[in-house]
């Protein structure tokens, strides 16, 4: 069964950390101040990060079950 996962466009990411703040599962880390990194094994695809992202660069993508 496919599941939704949040995916970051790391080239446009400003690493502000808005997504990290709203993630209910603490699946997000800010990688060395460069971009936000989402652990897909923890992500439940709720989409809160995508709403919070001021740059709108987080999208929810269908993934095959991991």
């Amino acid at each position: 069964m496919p599941r939704r996962k949040a995916v970051v466009d790391i080239n446009s990411c400003v690493a502000c950390g808005c997504c990290k703040k709203v993630c209910p599962k603490d699946a997000i880390t800010i990688e060395k101040g460069l971009y936000s990194k989402i652990d897909e094994s923890i992500c439940v695809g709720c989409g809160r990060c995508a709403i919070a992202c001021p740059a709108d660069i987080i999208t929810l993508v269908e993934r095959e079950n991991i």
Partner: peptide, 26 residues
């Protein structure tokens, strides 16, 4: 007009700190 923390996208301090990280790690 846009998202609450839209300032973060073009904040000069944020651009500078990310720039430092790019130089350091990328």
């Amino acid at each position: 007009l846009f998202k609450p923390r839209s300032w973060c996208v073009y904040c000069p301090m944020g651009t500078m700190t990310q720039g430092i990280c790019k130089i350091k790690y990328r």
